[in-house]
């Protein structure tokens, strides 16, 4: 039996209610960019996928969606866990992935390498779930746009120095583009493509 025991554990205890609770946390986070939400779930994949990443994968991915894993997340027990608990195919093609998971400390790939959707079908795009060292304490950023009353301060740690410039290019593609979900442990913060970002002026 190739499947390690670790791959069998760490799923939802009660798939119906836990996936609903995780989804409501995600829906709140996506409709209020820059706010921090906690996903209440005991789900945890073996290896480097965080609790929030594991919960998001179980909540949203299935045989109809493909998943891309960054190098630090790509490991046998994680692959077994994804296959056993979600049935989602793992792809090596970033541009075909519905969901892309990025491990802690890994360099942020070029957003244009992922699916950005088309002008007719902008929803055919990749959602990138990025594990960070913290969702606060980083560069002081100011976000505005749908879901935000006036402005909101956000400061996720561990983003590259040129992040605002890279994000602005993605936002500039609207309605095309990628959506980001920052995760840290069991907490999440969303950055949909509709959000404008700038550096907080000192």
């Amino acid at each position: 039996m190739a499947l390690a025991n670790a791959s069998l554990d760490g799923g939802f205890q009660d798939a119906v209610f836990e996936s609903q609770a995780v989804f409501r946390g995600l829906m709140d986070a996506m409709s209020r960019p820059g706010t921090i939400q906690t996903l209440e779930t005991p789900a945890k994949a073996p290896g480097a996928l965080s609790a929030a990443q594991s919960a998001i994968l179980l909540c949203l991915a299935d045989p109809d969606t493909s998943v891309w894993l960054s190098p630090s997340l790509y490991a046998q027990d994680a692959l077994g866990w994804i296959s056993f608990h979600s049935g989602a195919p793992v792809t090596h093609s970033m541009s075909n992935a519905n969901f892309a998971f990025l491990g802690l400390g890994e360099a942020l790939p070029d957003f244009l390498g992922f699916a950005n959707g088309t002008q007719e079908y902008p929803d055919r795009s990749t959602t990138i779930i990025i594990e960070l060292p913290a969702l606060t304490g980083g560069q002081a950023l100011v976000a505005a746009g749908p879901g935000i009353e006036n402005e909101i301060d956000m400061s996720p740690s561990g983003l590259p120095d040129n992040f605002v410039r890279r994000w602005s290019a993605n936002h500039g593609l609207f309605p095309r583009g990628v959506d980001l979900i920052f995760t840290c442990g069991s907490t999440v913060m969303c950055l949909p493509r509709s959000t404008q970002l700038k550096q907080r002026e000192v």
């Binding site: 829906m27 969606t65 519905n98």
Partner: peptide, 21 residues
């Protein structure tokens, strides 16, 4: 069923990210 909910939930998140689409 759970698979249908997942599909609808994915659509809802995309709809929120692209208001009015």
């Amino acid at each position: 069923d759970e698979q249908t909910k997942r599909m609808i939930r994915r659509a809802i998140l995309k709809a929120i990210a692209i208001p009015g689409y």
